[in-house]
Write a protein that binds this DNA or RNA. Sequence first.
DNA 1: GTTTCGGTTCTTTTT
DNA 2: GAACCGAAAC
Length: 641
Amino acid sequence: MNFRDSLNEAQYAAVTAPDGPSLVIAAAGTGKTRTLVYRVAWLVEQGVDPNRILLLTFTNKAAREMLDRAHALTGGGVSGMLGGTFHHLANRLLRQHAREIGFGHDYTILDSDDAKKLMKSCIDELEIDDKHFPKPQVLLSLYGLASGSQKPLDDLAYDWFSEAPIDIGNVLKLRDHYTKRKKELNVMDFDDLLLYALKLFQTSEYVRNLYQDRFQYVLVDEYQDTNTIQAEWVHLLAGKHKNLMVVGDDFQSIYSWRGADYHNFLSFPKRYPDTQVYKLETNYRSTPEILEVANACIKGNPMQFQKTLHAVRESIAEPTLAMLRDGDEQARYVIAKIEELKRKGTKLSEIAVLYRSHFHAMELQMALTHARFPYQVTSGIRFFEQAHVKDACTVLRLLENPADELAFKRLLEMFPKLGPKTADKIWKKLGSRFEARTPEAHAKLILALPAAAESIWKEIQPVFLAYDKENLSEDPGEIIYRFNKAFYGEYLVETFENAKHRQEDLDSLIDFTARFESCADFLSEMALLTNLDSEAETSPAGQDGVRLSTVHQAKGLEWKAVFVIWLNEGLFPSAKSVEQVGGEAEERRLFYVATTRAEDRLFLCCPEVRRKHDGGVIFYEPSTFIREIPEHLLKKERGFF
DNA sequence: GTTTCGGTTCTTTTT
DNA sequence: GAACCGAAAC
């Protein structure tokens, strides 16, 4: 393979870097993924066993893309290489060694919805009835931050609630209780996966040696988004061979609210004194006038590796700043521009509308539907977190983990006359455990059920018992199918008005299970996967449509034309973020990410007012980020409706 | 004592 | 939407 001809100077240097620690500072659109993929190919060509290469990413999408590309580039020469998200690797190791840290190997992974529910019941159990006590969601963020940053909870809590009269003692007590409950239920939340994986490495010499020996080369994508745990874990993973290559861009660090600390990235050379540094600044994606806007907007941010995007492309058009009246006019403006682009030959799938928060897209979604424009939303609600999908998986979860109280209660609460209180009583009566595979457990349960639920249970009991009898532990789809046939299909129709649509979801869920080797595999995956349609998007069948996405979810992607909507003070930058220390700088980086997604055309949209549902209006100033861009870089437009 | 239903309010970002 | 709250219904 000719590496020289496929790469520019800086890329080539990084790809062929000598052993030892190396830091690749890769600005937006400079071929970061390409560099990583070629690095893998290079290593393999040097005779490194792919089995001994580890590639860590943050998202499933990034992992899949890199593995695919590496595969294609080497003609299948990288099979055996381990590549995936931090959470995936953590899960993989923990499944094998969970006992060493006091869990069963059959632990369940809580998604955020489960975690919220469990947190709520913890609050009830501690009888905290303070009206002003923070909501489960808030507490989870706080605990997650403490876990990810490895900082003491009390310090963080004092800062977090400095202006609210919150009993910090309760906040601390609650975390201990929550931790204890998770152990009892044999469940881990997302933060736990990372935390316990690190703990495993710190406490078990055997495990540490096993993987330190194995991983001769460790590559980390988006290193600026690592938190303390991840950085420490990476440090240990590469601890023996010390061939650690991290790639990232401090300008694109946008996850500090979940503990990401780009100082890991900035201080990498300090931590590893013999680090080789490579800087990629040649941008292949965008026109010079788009890059000028991007460079201008990020320049003022404090504490960063200075770098400037150099364009290689020809000019096309100045980015447009559109001043609009309200959300409706904004929607009409966007649609009119999309029509114009389409007439000039841009495919709809090459156009994206980006925004700070999901609800910012509401008017636009309605207008697009009305105008019969095909569009695809990278949705806020994750496929696997929808109520009916979670309902359908309760049986499986119980079969796999008899201590899964959340699944048990979720299942029982679908029955008539059975609410939270009764479900709790029954769970306790059964000794906080339900061995769903044994007939004895079912007999005991039936005695405890209200009369109305009894007959329903008798319908679904065979589904549970078939698991061992018919050896279904490798066929998650079959269990879901039978549960649906025995009970859930009917329940769906009685409960939801859009039952048909939800039934279709379940059908595709059953199809989706086919790719998994076991129920345990499937359950882990569905907690760690974001969306079912993520692969529909890469498949050729993915139909033509405008992409609607949050900026966070757009990271790493690119489109010919990009619209950024609701660029208003309080919305983007979001008011809540700006309150936090370093919040505005992070929002600015987010805006930088948004602008650097565009290849040819960039439209910045800035309405004046937002209409509330009650008919009132709120005035919004244009975003600081707009005002920071020198005027001559933008072409100004007004609404025309 | 519980469940269920209907009305109200509010949306940050993700593994 | 969906999460929360209060009141009616069982």
